[in-house]
């Protein structure tokens, strides 16, 4: 059993960190709340969707309501930065004019407006993470979930990325970040939820 007796509420508009050692269950919890895995028992409610009872056809609807940032970025290597960032809008069928405008705006927000035509491999790790964040934000999700978003970055870049998340949170988006970077968590002074051996031990 990866998680047990977990009882956790994050309020709308809140920014919170999930910390814990490797194997504590952070990724499992992260996969549950991003509808990557289905819980075997209990209830998981995110952005108005009860994920435990989510039907297959409702999964895409839910995923369009959240934004997800992965530690390994999960960018499409053969696609341009523009195409990667446009993905959430493309899958919901937005008109190309709107897509172009919003991609330009969000890339401007993360400081990569000039890299639209590049491929991910032409970007540094920090830039790729910012592209991943831009993709997670472009459809204005109700909740932004990030799994170790600074795991591959140096301390300076990590701080920049965290500042970006704070900006997003300031605009009203709920932000939930799984990280093992204790220093960053301490400096930000936000709510910290600590998990170990599948159970929440602090910040419930």
């Amino acid at each position: 059993m990866a998680l047990r007796d977990v009882n956790l509420t994050i309020d709308k508009g809140e920014m919170a960190f999930l910390t814990g050692p490797s194997g504590a269950g952070k990724t499992t919890l992260f996969r549950m709340i991003s509808a990557y895995d289905r819980p075997t028992s209990g209830a998981v409610s995110v952005a108005g969707f009860n994920l435990a009872n989510l039907k297959s056809f409702e999964v895409p609807q839910f995923r369009r309501r959240i934004g997800v940032v992965y530690q390994d970025f999960r960018l499409l290597k053969k696609h341009t930065i523009f195409e990667n960032v446009a993905l959430p809008l493309e899958v919901r069928g937005d008109a190309s004019g709107i897509v172009t405008k919003k991609v330009a705006e969000v890339l401007e927000q993360v400081g990569l407006a000039h890299r639209q035509g590049d491929k991910p491999e032409q970007l540094s790790g920090g830039e790729q993470q910012r592209v991943a964040i831009a993709r997670a934000l472009i459809h204005q999700p109700a909740v932004l979930i990030a799994d170790e978003p600074t795991g591959n970055l140096d301390p300076q870049l990590s701080l920049e990325i965290m500042e970006l998340f704070e900006k997003v949170n300031a605009q009203g988006t709920t932000v939930f970040i799984a990280t093992h970077d204790v220093e960053i968590v301490r400096r930000k002074g936000k709510r910290v939820i600590e998990i170990n051996q599948g159970q929440i031990i602090r910040g419930q």
Binding site: S34, Y36, S56, F57, P60, Q61, R63, R64, V68, R74, L75, L76, K78, L87, P88, V91, R92, R135
Partner: peptide, 16 residues
């Protein structure tokens, strides 16, 4: 495979 997974994670429907 990777592309399909990413499409799904960002809300692509089955038919997309």
């Amino acid at each position: 495979r990777d592309e399909i997974e990413i499409l799904e994670l960002f809300g692509a429907t089955s038919w997309y």
